[in-house]
């Protein structure tokens, strides 16, 4: 195919534009990373902070020796690992039940799931239920309310329904129980969807902070994201409210904030390039069959 002059100009322009866009997406993380290894004096200088001449790991030393941050990291790991494992199991089992045509009350069970996408009790009634269940200030509050979400269960159900029925039939003839069929046939055949759900749920847990903010008072039980949220909020409100008593809140220097951000996103950044395709396949599944 021969290219006209106009097309060549368009191509150059397009590549330039998209390169700029990629830089805009990437630069904030680069900037934060550079700040985190700058000295406090360098960090407050105006500029783009594309690099630093005298790298200084002091901020990381402080962050990683801070007991609160280590506790928070532990809480995040707890909710991400246990929360994801349990949510995945509960979601897949519910989805398997819904995928079976002989499931008793299948329509009702399906409705109960989908209706939660349309309507919810809202913040305050949910808070009161959690309170009555004595889950306030309890780490299980991170895990139990997130055991099942409608969207995840529906795409898992769609995937299970695409597995040939004959496999199920022959297993039944061989006398297999549903549990054996589920764990022995369906789970091994569903690796793509399981990976997708696993990653979605895990990222959700890793990034959560709101539930901790309203349900947890004990600072030793909060996750990383909430700790970071408080740190950033202090810096923001103090900057804007110089009339506010500055001694009432301690503002962390930008280097410490940056180092905390990097520590909080590093696991996601590290695995991101490898898991990206699973996120994608999940979107496609969701788009094809809702």
């Amino acid at each position: 195919m021969k290219r006209t002059k106009g097309e060549k100009i368009f191509n150059v322009f397009n590549i330039a534009l998209l390169s700029m866009f990629a830089i805009v997406c990437l630069y904030p993380f680069w900037y934060t990373a550079v700040l985190s290894i700058s000295s406090t004096a360098d960090a407050v200088k105006e500029g783009l902070h594309l690099f630093t001449l005298n790298p200084d790991l002091n901020a990381y030393r402080q962050v990683l020796s801070d007991e609160n941050i280590l506790f928070a990291y532990g809480n995040t790991l707890f909710r991400t690992i246990l929360g994801t494992a349990l949510a995945l199991l509960v979601t897949l089992m519910y989805a398997y039940g819904l995928s079976r045509k002989e499931m008793p009350a299948r329509r009702l069970l399906s409705f109960l799931l989908i209706f939660t996408m349309l309507f919810s009790g809202g913040t305050i009634p949910t808070y009161l239920i959690i309170k009555n269940l004595k889950l306030l200030d309890n780490r299980w509050v991170y895990i139990l309310p997130c055991l099942i979400t409608a969207y995840n269960a529906i795409i898992a159900r769609s995937f299970f329904m695409s597995i040939p029925e004959s496999l199920h039939e022959s297993a039944i003839l061989d006398g297999a129980s549903e549990f054996r069929i589920f764990f022995g046939i369906y789970i091994p055949l569903s690796k793509p969807i399981i990976m997708t759900l696993l990653l979605w749920i895990a990222v959700g847990h890793w990034n959560s902070w709101y539930d901790a903010m309203i349900y947890i008072n004990d600072d030793s039980k909060i996750p990383m994201q909430l700790l970071l949220q408080r740190m950033v909020e202090n810096s923001r409100t103090t900057v804007m409210n110089s009339s506010l008593d500055a001694s009432a809140v301690t503002v962390m220097p930008a280097t410490i904030r940056s180092a905390t951000i990097i520590v909080a996103v590093l696991p996601i950044l590290a695995v991101y390039p490898f898991i990206q395709k699973y996120f994608m396949s999940g979107v496609m599944l969701g788009a094809v069959k809702g």
């Binding site: 509960v90 039940g97 499931m103 009790g121 239920i129 139990l144």
Partner: peptide
């Protein structure tokens, strides 16, 4: 099969439907 949906059903009732009652 009922056992399969039971954990999810309990979670839905407690954390989604009880608040609606609230």
């Amino acid at each position: 099969l009922l056992l399969f949906v039971l954990p999810g059903l309990i979670a839905l009732i407690i954390f989604n439907y009880l608040p609606m009652g609230g």
